[in-house]
């Protein structure tokens, strides 16, 4: 990790959040995003051809980066147990297939997932703080988060209040993130749960807003910034993720701290996943090509990765009959 930049730079950032006015001045002082340029850059990075051994590596890396997600009203403990088993051993016929990074569930199912995963190394992520709408009083959001942490969640995915953000009440959003981060601490000590902050970029309207939200969340201490809950269309797109990657890159230059990025929703094929990996490598560099710093929030993506993996290993096309129905 590179050394901290000049103390002046970090000093500037700590002043930024002193009041609503300074925060707004800072966020609106960020350079605007060139929409056409960002989309063209994302599209051109998507044309890279990744084949043979590089493709095999990309597939295994992508599997290790998957947050295997189920966020349905109809989720049952049985479904979560099945999903957790799949996360630990995605391809039961192939012991060389790596495990996924985490299982992502609603807070009430954290205990079930935790029990099934044990000490396998696969984390439990919980969406807390009134995901997907994010419209609840702060104390409810905090209680939701504390419950999930107490049940053993390793990671908390919260969503910002887009209404407050779009109205310009940036300090309110900032303070909510800070408070939820506080709720991620474990009462008895120990490693606090990692906090991922969801922007729901499909509702933020502009890339400028995505950039502002990224900085806001990073200033508030997010470990990860995440595009979407998966409940709103459009969810993750390449240009949105590009803007967020640029933000974490600039944030590291300013403060020396790394923040992770998680596109979620709408990433269904291996080809899509590889495009994201290419973009990570080109925009922020290989430091981020690790499950600690880049994740995919996905459910169906894993099956396609497994089918492609089997195609590379056996030389013949696989089919949906040979992977689980989630």
């Amino acid at each position: 990790m590179p050394a901290l930049t000049s103390p002046g730079a970090t000093g500037d950032l700590s002043d930024v959040t002193a009041s609503d006015a300074t925060l707004r001045r800072f966020l609106h002082g960020l350079p605007g995003v060139d929409q056409v340029g960002a989309e063209a850059r994302a599209a051109s990075l998507g044309t890279r051809s990744i084949k043979t051994t590089a493709k095999a590596q990309a597939i295994d890396l992508a599997i290790r980066m998957v947050d295997l997600t189920t966020l349905e009203g109809q989720d049952t403990p049985g479904k979560v147990r099945a999903l957790a088993s799949k996360a630990m051993r995605p391809d039961p016929t192939d012991a060389t297939c790596p495990a996924t990074a985490a299982v992502c569930v609603y807070p009430d199912l954290v205990g079930v997932a935790k029990q099934q995963l044990g000490d396998s190394g696969v984390n439990v992520a919980a969406v807390a703080a009134a995901v997907p709408r994010g419209r609840a009083p702060l104390d409810i959001k905090l209680a939701d988060t504390r419950d999930a942490v107490a049940a053993g969640a390793d990671e908390i995915d919260m969503v910002i209040d887009r209404g407050a953000f779009l109205t310009g009440r940036y300090l309110q959003v900032f303070e909510e993130i800070v408070a939820v981060r506080g709720a991620c601490e474990r009462p008895g000590g120990g490693e606090p749960a990692h906090l991922k902050v969801i922007f729901e970029t499909g509702e933020l309207q502009t890339y400028d807003n995505v950039r502002r939200a990224s900085w806001l969340a990073m200033l508030a201490g997010a470990h990860f910034i995440k595009t979407s809950t998966g409940k709103v269309q459009p969810a993750a797109t390449l240009p949105v993720t590009l803007v967020m990657l640029e933000a974490v890159r600039d944030y590291r230059e300013a403060t020396g701290q790394m923040v992770g990025v998680k596109p979620a929703g709408g990433i269904r094929t291996t080809k899509d996943a590889v495009k994201y990996l290419v973009m990570v490598n080109e925009v922020v560099g290989a430091d981020w090509l690790d499950p600690d710093w880049f994740r995919f929030g996905a459910s169906t993506l894993l099956n396609d990765l497994l089918m492609q993996r089997s195609k590379l290993a056996t030389g013949r096309y696989s089919g949906p009959d040979y992977v689980t129905i989630d």
Binding site: G315, R316, Y317, S318, G319, P320, D321, Y322
Partner: peptide
């Protein structure tokens, strides 16, 4: 040959 070997055919 690709169709004959394809597991989803």
């Amino acid at each position: 040959p690709w169709l004959a070997a394809h597991l989803d055919v």
